[in-house]
Simulated assay, not measured.
Amino acid sequence: MDISVVIPLYNEIESLPELTSWISSVMTENRFTYEIILVDDGSTDGSWGMIMKLRDGNPFIRGFRFRRNYGKSAALNIGFDAALGDVVITMDADLQDSPDEIPELYRRVKEENYDLISGWKAKRYDPISKTIPTKLFNAATRKMSGIKNLHDFNCGLKAYRNTVVKNIEVYGEMHRYIPVLAKWAGFTQIGEQVVEHRARKYGKTKFGWSRFINGFLDLLSIFFVGKFGKRPMHFFGSMGTLSFFAGIIIAVWMLVEKVYLIAHHLPYRDVTSNPLFYIALVAIILGSQLFLTGFVAELVSRNSNDRNNYQIAETI
C-alpha cells in the first residue's frame, strides 16, 4: 500500500464527508493505493455515526472510536499503530489542511529519502493570540532539539516513512514534538514543506490556553528523557557532584580563613554568623540529594523492561 492518511478528530461531523471525498479524489487521480484512518477521540456530535456511513460507501476508510476524549496524541498513536502504508500522512479533520499537498509530500519521502516531512503554514489564518505563542514555542523547540530547519513543529500536516511511526510513542501532548521524538529515535532526515493553511470552514477550535503550558512541560520531558532517559546518573550525578564540592570548597575556605585569623591574633566572627556557612550547607545537602536521586533513578532504569530497547536500522 502506498499511503495511509491518519486523521484524529473530535466533533468534526460536518467536515468529514467533504474531507474524505477530497482525499479519495486526490488518491484516485494520482493512482495511489491508500487507506484513510479516522480516529474519533470521543466525539459527542455524532461523528462516529458519520464515519460508519462513510465507510459503507468507501471501503478504503477505517475507523477507531475512543470511549472518551483522550487527546490528539492518543489518537495519533492508535492511527500510527494501525497504518499499513509505506508513507503515513497526518492531517487535521477541520479542512484547514489541504489533501492536494499529499502527492508532493509522498514524492519527497519516497524519492528524496526523507524520514519525515513537516508542513509549514507560512501564511496562517489563526488569531494573533495563537500565532505569537506558537512562534515562541517553535523557537524554544528549535533551540532545545537542535532541529534548526523547521519553522512549525506543530503543523498537523506531516508525512512519515512507515518505519518512523512504528518506532515512536506519542502520548500526553507529545504530538507537538513528533519531529523531536523521531530525531531521538535516530531518524534524522527531517525536512520541511510550505503548505496551504485554509480558513476553518466548520465548527471552532478545540484547543485552549492550557495546551501551551502542557506543551512546554512536554518539551522539557522530551529533552530530559531523550538525553538522559537511559543514563539518569549522568545528569543527577553531575549536578550533585558539582553542588556537593562547591559546598565543600566554601566550607574549607571558611575554615582556613578562621584558622588564619586565629593564628595571627586577628578579630574574627563565629562561622555560623557568616551567610556563606548556610550557602555551603545547602549546597552540600542538595548535592547529596541529587546524587542519591541519580542513584535511585539508575536502579529504576536498570530494572525497566525498556532498558535495552534500542532502534536497529537494519540487520543482515
Score class of each variant (00 low, 15 high):
1 M>Y: 04
3 I>N: 07
3 I>V: 15
7 I>K: 12
18 E>C: 03
23 I>R: 03
24 S>K: 14
25 S>R: 15
26 V>R: 14
26 V>A: 12
31 R>G: 02
36 I>H: 00
40 D>E: 05
45 D>Y: 04
50 M>I: 10
51 I>G: 12
51 I>H: 11
51 I>R: 08
53 K>G: 03
57 G>F: 06
57 G>C: 06
66 F>L: 09
70 Y>Q: 03
73 S>C: 09
76 L>F: 15
76 L>D: 07
77 N>P: 12
81 D>I: 02
86 D>Y: 05
87 V>F: 04
87 V>T: 10
88 V>K: 04
93 A>P: 00
95 L>N: 03
103 P>D: 05
109 V>L: 08
110 K>P: 02
113 N>M: 10
116 L>M: 15
116 L>E: 10
118 S>K: 11
121 K>M: 08
123 K>T: 13
124 R>N: 01
126 D>M: 01
128 I>L: 15
129 S>H: 05
129 S>R: 12
130 K>S: 06
131 T>H: 01
135 K>D: 14
137 F>P: 00
141 T>K: 10
144 M>R: 11
146 G>P: 07
153 F>G: 09
158 K>M: 10
160 Y>G: 04
161 R>K: 15
163 T>M: 04
172 G>R: 13
172 G>F: 10
179 P>D: 06
187 F>H: 03
192 E>G: 11
194 V>M: 11
194 V>F: 10
194 V>G: 09
197 H>Y: 13
204 K>N: 04
208 G>A: 00
209 W>L: 07
215 G>P: 05
219 L>R: 09
225 V>C: 06
227 K>P: 00
227 K>H: 10
228 F>Q: 01
230 K>S: 07
233 M>I: 11
237 G>E: 07
239 M>Y: 00
245 F>D: 03
246 A>P: 00
248 I>Q: 03
249 I>W: 12
251 A>G: 14
263 A>C: 05
264 H>Y: 10
265 H>C: 02
269 R>P: 01
269 R>W: 01
273 S>R: 13
274 N>H: 14
275 P>F: 04
279 I>H: 02
281 L>R: 00
281 L>K: 01
282 V>Q: 00
283 A>W: 01
283 A>C: 00
285 I>K: 04
285 I>Y: 06
285 I>A: 14
286 L>A: 10
286 L>D: 05
294 G>N: 02
295 F>M: 08
295 F>I: 02
297 A>E: 08
299 L>T: 05
303 N>L: 11
303 N>Y: 11
306 D>S: 07
306 D>H: 04
306 D>I: 03
307 R>Y: 12
310 Y>L: 11
316 I>T: 03
